[in-house]
């Protein structure tokens, strides 16, 4: 046993040594691990973990890009980090911040409390609560109309999509879209909703709330993201273990990628690769959409939200 001590000491020194890496880091919310994983984009390795209180789920950059907010739902706080160094600046007490989003005009911060069945509208300058909408049940994802007049919220427990008018602070309409709706995307004058309890994306008229049509993707359609060039909408199918690429202009499925492990949130790298969190595999997948091949990176338990800053240089503790 004694002979192992020098090796252990060397490993400890190596672990504590500065970890040099090129600029560009990714932050991953380990929702069941009470931590945030920091990944070096170049080497695709996890550099360190930043501890948080309980359950970090989603992340959002403030409109002025000066603050990165992580919602710790069970911890009932927003963790405010420096988006360039991922250093924790402060903790803001907020009730059940599961999902968060800023209106495009930057006037409102909307926070969905999935456990408390509430949608809260905050003033982002002061983080004071402006209005609470009790919306049964399980408000999970959201997106905004480009003019910031409306926010569309999926209600996972009741199978509905709700439209909240941010000008009058009233609920304009609720419409049934299918069982357990999750991801929401405003796109070309339509609202798209991934219906997790089924196998399709519901297309809804944002003015009337009328269900226009369904686009079949795969079982457990969970999240949907528009690519930076605006040409593709990626839809993650949680049960099927696939990612379907929709033509953003026609909404016709063009390609299906096999991606097991519970694909969830997505970020797009400048080199064209797409990064996915894999909820059940405690990994992040880095996929080349041209070939469909991917590498994986070990992170913490149940990784959920993901944020990428190609210019970030993070100094991990001890590094």
């Amino acid at each position: 046993m004694r002979s192992l001590l020098p090796v252990a000491a060397l490993m400890a020194v190596m672990a504590a040594a500065p970890q040099a890496h090129a600029a560009g880091d990714v932050l991953v919310m380990n929702s069941a691990g009470a931590s945030l994983s920091v990944i070096d984009m170049a080497s695709k390795t996890e550099l360190c973990r930043i501890p948080v209180l309980r359950e970090p789920h989603h992340v959002m950059l403030t409109p002025d890009k000066r603050d990165l907010l992580v919602g710790d739902s069970a911890g009932n706080e927003l963790v405010d980090l420096d988006p360039n160094s991922f250093a924790v600046r402060r903790h803001l007490p907020v009730s059940d911040p599961y999902q968060l989003g800023f209106s495009p005009n930057g006037k409102f911060l909307v926070v969905n409390g999935i456990a408390r069945a509430q949608v809260d509208i905050y003033d982002p300058a002061t983080y004071k609560l402006i209005k609470r909408f009790p919306l049964p049940t399980m408000p999970s994802h959201m997106d905004f109309a480009p003019d910031s007049g409306m926010v569309y919220v999926s209600l996972q427990g009741t199978g509905k999509l709700a439209a909240i008018d941010l000008r009058t602070m009233t609920v304009s309409w609720e419409t049934a879209v299918g069982p357990a709706p999750a991801g929401v995307l405003w796109h070309n004058g339509l609202v798209l909703v991934a219906v997790m309890g089924a196998d399709y994306v519901a297309v809804v008229d944002p003015a009337t709330g009328k269900l226009d049509r369904r686009i079949h993707t795969g079982k457990g359609a969970h999240q949907l993201f528009l690519s930076p060039d605006g040409k593709i909408i990626y839809v993650n199918d949680r049960v099927e273990g696939t990612v379907v690429a929709l033509n953003a202009a026609t909404l016709i499925p063009e390609h299906t990628y096999k991606l097991p492990g519970g694909p969830d949130d997505i970020v797009f790298a400048p080199d064209g690769h797409v990064w996915f969190t894999l909820r059940f595999d405690h990994k992040v997948a880095v996929m080349d959409p041209a070939s469909g091949t991917y590498d994986t990176i070990e992170v913490g338990r149940s990784p959920h939200g993901i944020f990428m800053n190609p210019r970030a240089v993070v100094k991990c503790p001890g590094g």
Binding site: Q156, G157, P179, M196, G197, V239
Partner: peptide
């Protein structure tokens, strides 16, 4: 997950 999907309980998947 496949069981919850077939039973219509996907809202509890998390």
């Amino acid at each position: 997950l496949p069981l919850m999907y077939s039973l219509g309980l996907m809202q509890w998947e998390d």
